[in-house]
């Protein structure tokens, strides 16, 4: 059930200030400074840092009295309110959660950090030149499940959620006047139209898979530097590496890793199944646009936030790559939307 309401901006800010901790993403601050400027919000470059940080300790170990002593280091998680855009909320809700919390063996630390978050999704009125959420099933006004959906208006906010009881803010909300409803619908339409890339069709994952051996990958991949900028700043990339730091005493660390690095797939024998830029770039594209959706009921592993496009030192644009391959595969775009 959808519940909608209107709340004064000042009430929203007061509510935020009353939260234990507030986190926002860099792109949100760029666009909605006014919402968080008076709250001491922590800024993250990439929303996945809140649940899957760049590095962390798993346990400590030391050699003592001729035996190893291992001590668990559980994470401490504070309750946090996270203000993000729909793509970022989707990344947590529909990609990372599926990876780390699905099934019988949820990842302990992830689960703990994740369950301490409450997500507030701020709709995007002005998509940037790097945005392409629509292409991968998103929308600048997407109501991401289990989040509070917010559209900032002049001095009020339009708020929408499924479960009003869990949001304290709801007490301050009043009924939505019909002219506001219209305004929202217009904004929604306008914003959607600002995103030129239409949604990819359902066949894309399977069709791309067939192009595994295609030689076009060579041309697509050539300019890529094989660095970690795109994957490290991608909100859905979840690969990590585990390593011990210290010989007789130290920590077991976990840190981000990336399929773009040659060492990522290097075997102990010296053999590397992904020896060149071609294989590595193909992996990144296919993982997000083929393997992941084939396994996860069509959910693309990319949320279209454009972070990778923004940071790439050689302007390697994943939209171009995908569109080129999709065209080649003949899969095309979904008709509806």
């Amino acid at each position: 059930m959808k519940h909608a309401g209107i709340v004064k901006k000042s009430d929203f800010i007061t509510w935020l200030a009353s939260r234990e901790a507030v986190i926002t993403s860099e792109r949100l601050i760029r666009r909605h400074k006014e919402l968080v400027s008076s709250v001491s919000a922590m800024e993250v470059r990439n929303v996945k840092e809140t649940v899957f940080p760049g590095f962390g300790t798993l346990f400590s170990y030391r050699w003592e009295d001729r035996r190893w002593i291992i001590e668990d280091i559980p994470v401490t998680a504070k309750k946090c309110t996270v203000l993000v855009h729909p793509c970022e909320a989707t990344a947590l809700n529909e990609v990372l959660d599926r990876v780390f919390m699905n099934g019988e063996h949820p990842e302990r630390d992830y689960e703990k950090l994740r369950s301490s978050l409450e997500l507030v999704t701020i709709a995007c009125e002005e998509p940037e030149s790097t945005c392409f959420c629509r292409m991968v099933g998103g929308d600048p006004f997407r109501r991401v499940p289990d989040t509070l959906f917010v559209v900032p208006l002049e001095d009020r906010l339009y708020v929408e959620c499924e479960e009003p009881n869990v949001w304290e803010l709801w007490k301050k909300c009043v009924k939505v006047p019909s002219e506001v409803e219209k305004e929202i619908a217009e904004k929604e339409k306008k914003s959607r139209e600002a995103l030129p890339d239409p949604p990819l069709s359902e066949e894309v994952p399977e069709q791309l898979y067939r192009l595994f051996e295609d030689e076009e990958w060579d041309n697509i991949a050539w300019k890529c530097l094989n660095c970690g900028a795109c994957t490290y700043l991608c909100p859905t990339c979840y690969c990590f590496d585990i390593h011990a730091d210290g010989r007789l005493k130290g920590y077991q660390l976990r840190s981000w890793d990336a399929c773009m690095f040659p060492r990522f797939t290097l075997h102990a024998s010296g053999h590397n199944p992904r020896p060149g830029y071609r294989e590595r770039v193909r992996q990144r594209v296919l993982h997000k646009f083929s393997y992941f959706p084939m396994r996860e009921e069509g959910r693309f592993g990319c949320v279209g936030c454009g972070a990778c496009v923004e940071v790439c030192p050689v302007n390697w644009d994943i939209r171009e790559a995908v569109q080129r391959m999709v065209k080649k595969s003949g899969a095309g775009y979904a008709r509806s939307s």
């Binding site: 760049g54 530097l225 094989n226 660095c227 970690g228 900028a229 490290y232 700043l233 981000w256 990336a258 690095f261 030192p313 050689v314």
Partner: peptide, 10 residues
Amino acid sequence: CIRCYACRNA
């Protein structure tokens, strides 16, 4: 620094 090695690779 996130150690992405872009500096080195560029």
